[in-house]
Design a protein around this nucleic acid. Structure first.
Lengths: 151, 151
DNA sequence: CGTTGTAGGACTATTATAGTCCTATATAGC
DNA sequence: GCTATATAGGACTATAATAGTCCTACAACG
């Protein structure tokens, strides 16, 4: 499939949904799920992950819900991605040389490591607020399976 | 392995194995499989794919086998990757805007599209011959690569 | 104290990937 | 021609990763 998975997409949508509310008022998972066409239960799970990673704050009870724990401009795409699907790695060996059983026979590494660094850097630079404007319109139709729509 | 799958890794190893033989003599799937620690049947499948994509030539019969269809310096990592696992895409929508049902609500696209282009370009630049030296365990890498590292 | 919310464990379902089995066919050498 | 060794490839099984659901517990506002 793709590098960014469906759950990552959901997480991004959720974060964007929260960022738009931008207020003090917490937003409920149910509302977010509906707003962004995501399965409710999954939305809960993903928000929990985001909460454990301190990207969002939560309050329980009626009037409860979630809000971003810092400004959208201080949350990167990479932050969100890593919470949901872990780091985007080209190849497992790139993380820890020590783990590769074929080393030193295998060493695609050097050039790929450069690319890896670039990807990490790039994803780390893109921030949530950059996604806000483009996401702001109300959607036209789109119903059916909760299929993968888009990032 | 994440972005690059195991089969892609196998394909890369197979190609490297072939590139090292550098000769006129075709190399059999069985030999390659053993050399590179890969399941024989899978190796056959993958070589078939590489053959259909014209990256390798094949000859049947005893003394048959595979050889690269062009020089290692003219085969990119991207060529191999795309044969085995398809294009490395960050997100499905980046391929064709027309397919996205959430447009225009969603448009992470712009920044990600840049990254996508960079990845494609980079993978397209890395050539097989650049992997040869680093993959041969005999020689430590005291040697500068003659490969074309041009953008 | 009931309603509306999050927390989260434990499951099921679905899909993608990896890997195997089997049969057909080509060809070199006898 | 016959046989051994090779690729070609369809059809299958197995395994793993991902997506999604169900259920119970707990927190807090009114």
């Amino acid at each position: 499939m793709d590098v960014l998975r469906r759950n990552t997409d959901y997480a991004l949508r959720a974060m964007v949904g929260l960022a738009r509310q931008d207020g003090q008022e917490p937003v409920s998972a149910r509302w977010l799920a509906k707003e962004q066409d995501m399965p409710y239960q999954l939305t809960c799970k993903i928000l929990q992950k985001l909460h454990n990673a301190r990207l969002v704050e939560s309050c329980m009870g009626p009037k409860g819900g979630f809000r971003l724990s810092r400004k959208p401009s201080r949350i990167s795409l990479r932050d969100v991605i890593e919470v949901v699907q872990g780091p985007v790695q080209l190849n497992r060996c790139l993380l820890g040389v020590s783990e590769c059983p074929r080393w030193p026979k295998c060493a695609v590494s050097k050039r790929l490591a450069d690319l890896q660094r670039h990807i990490d850097g790039y994803l780390g630079e893109i921030t949530l607020d950059e996604l806000l404007t483009s996401r702001s319109m109300k959607k036209p139709k789109t119903k059916g399976k909760p299929g993968r729509k888009n990032v």
